[in-house]
Design a protein around this nucleic acid. Structure first.
Lengths: 164, 164
DNA sequence: CTTTTTTAGTTGCTATATACAATTATTGTA
DNA sequence: TACAATAATTGTATATAGCAACTAAAAAAG
């Protein structure tokens, strides 16, 4: 059903995505260790930093994680003085989360590490190629995130995973 | 230190990589659930399937994880009849790991799901663009995986992460 | 304005994922 | 043969994550 040649491309594409996932994960881990934070904290710091200030719910939505998970992650950040939780003015149920000075320092370090890696990658390319690379990655990200996240179809072979 | 305009590209690039990581993770999770396996099992199945047969050590190296982790993951696959462990002939310490028929069925399903997603993404593009996308992703993967995985530099702000 | 429902966050519990250290069996080497 | 290196497993600890139950607050119904 797919045109000639697409299959092979799909295979390479898929392999590339898996490698990216792995590499990004590994790099995030070592970087987090360097900065003295956990991986989850690293992700949270990045998002909080980008947003400036947001509620727990917003943060959870951005990261695609459960609020309870983020509640604990933020708890850790607060405990270590990297983020501050202040009750929201307009809704006393909500909390506003923002980075402290120390948190911003950590963010700077995370960003510069990643910036170096990415710059290194882009610097090796002529401008039009690097532009194409950036655009492609953005496209892949958007498409992956977008299309039908909850489909499942075709009741498969497995059954449930863990029986205990 | 970087030429004009590169900074902005780096920012977009970095954001794209993070989104890809997140999307791939989310998709892998839902797909794993559908197939009745865990995420870790899903990764392992894919690698075992690609290799045909390999030792635990090789599998761990490919996935960039500790052997003990893979030992348990494979234990689960074996328990559920998705993989088989046979003692290696030339080295009785080692085990050869391969998929069973059921494991191959699961792999087929995982691959076809991913194939559909990737094909969907590529089909929307003219051939030269899709080729560029695939090449870009491969480049990004290679570069990310390659360059200096263990550097750390600049003793940062944090200290250790969790003090308890 | 009270009652009901919805929402934001936290906490208890559980499962998954992972690493490091110690152990065992085996292989290779001095 | 004694000793060092290696492949796998197991013990233990931690991080990550979701769901369910709960609390407090806000919003909607009446």
């Amino acid at each position: 059903m797919v045109e000639e040649g697409l299959e092979a491309k799909v295979e390479r594409f898929r392999a590339g995505l898996r490698e990216i996932e792995r590499a990004v994960r590994a790099r995030t881990r070592s970087e987090a260790l360097c900065c003295g934070v956990t991986v989850a904290q690293c992700h949270a710091i990045t998002e909080i930093g980008e947003a400036g200030e947001l509620t727990l719910k917003e943060l959870a939505a951005r990261l695609g994680l459960d609020a309870s998970t983020l509640s604990r992650t933020v708890e850790g950040l607060v405990r270590e003085g990297l983020a501050a939780r202040t009750p929201a003015l307009r809704d006393r149920r909500a909390v506003q989360i923002a980075l402290t000075g120390k948190g911003r320092t950590a963010l700077d370090r995370i960003q510069s590490t990643w910036g170096d890696i990415c710059a290194e990658m882009l610097r090796g390319l002529p401008p039009e190629k690097s532009e194409a690379l950036v655009a492609s990655v953005a496209l892949a990200a958007r498409t992956l995130a977008g299309c039908c996240p909850g489909e499942c179809g075709t009741g498969g072979p497995g059954g449930r995973a863990q029986e205990r």
